[in-house]
């Protein structure tokens, strides 16, 4: 028995105006409830792929649909409705630094809030209660009044997860969510992403460059090299030979000496 399809990517290509081919004929399918890791070197197209899924970047060719609805041809209100389905987490957190933690989380509700109200940050009591619940969930419930830039990197990323959760998403796109964090703090952030996946059944697509994290959290992984999808499989399928084919023969891995 297989779960229904969450995301379909068909023959996706992205060519930048300067002629650089960031994605080259990538096809993949993600099923509901999966935690898919996307591996690859910097510049291999991981970030471009994630940003095409919610159309922060317009693809050059190919088709993407999420939960059966076409993203590539969506415009205006239809596109915004699709974006609401997919919460996004960024390497640089991308919080509004001068806003409070609470207002940052509330901005996750913008897609369902009237424009005029939201211009004056007038959110309903129900939204405020929901924002508090989201903050509690990531262990930041007591920091609602702090300014976002007063927090540490790990705390900012947890607030960003709360913001994504506030969207009530069915999908989370996480673009290198822990790459700017101290290695000791990475699991504290990844565990929150994992909890959303396990407990809420939210599908997660997460680009990572840390193989240990991939093996620990992902249910499946794909690898990109120079914009092409070069490998796909269970985390345990990524053995040394496969990794060298993804990262190049010069690459060295921590577990190599041990094995």
């Amino acid at each position: 028995m297989t779960a229904p399809v969450a995301v379909t990517v068909e023959r996706l290509s992205k060519v930048w105006p300067d002629g650089i081919r960031a994605l080259d004929d990538v096809s993949l399918e993600v099923r509901e409830g999966e935690f898919l890791a996307v591996l690859g070197l910097s510049g291999s197209g991981k970030s471009t792929l994630l940003r095409c899924i919610n159309r922060l970047i317009d693809p050059t060719e190919g088709k993407i649909s999420i939960f059966g609805r076409d993203v590539t041809s969506a415009e205006g209100a239809g596109l915004r409705a699709l974006r609401r389905e997919a919460g996004m987490i960024f390497q640089q957190f991308n919080l509004v630094k001068r806003h409070s933690v609470r207002d940052n989380v509330l901005s996750g509700a913008l897609g369902r809030t009237g424009t005029l109200r939201s211009l004056f940050l007038l959110f309903s009591d129900a939204d405020r209660a929901e924002a508090q619940a989201c903050l509690d969930r990531v262990g930041m419930g007591d920091r609602g009044d702090s300014r976002a830039d007063a927090l540490s990197g790990g705390q900012q990323q947890r607030v960003a997860i709360a913001r994504a959760l506030m969207q009530r998403p069915k999908l989370i796109l996480a673009d290198e969510p822990v790459a700017s964090l101290d290695p000791a703090l990475r699991n504290s952030v990844m565990r929150h992403v994992e909890a959303l996946n396990r407990e809420e059944g939210i599908t997660v697509i997460c680009s990572l460059h840390d193989l240990d994290l991939m093996k620990r959290y992902a249910t499946r992984a794909v690898a990109l090299r120079e914009g092409k999808l070069v490998h796909e499989g269970k985390p345990e399928d990524f053995d040394l030979a496969t990794l060298k084919s993804i990262y190049g023969q010069e690459a060295e891995f921590g577990f190599e000496a041990a094995s």
Partner: peptide, 19 residues
Amino acid sequence: GPMDAIKATGAGTLQVLRY
């Protein structure tokens, strides 16, 4: 970055500018 993040929530143009 923050512009992209707000856009990703499904916010409209004015909301993206405001936040």
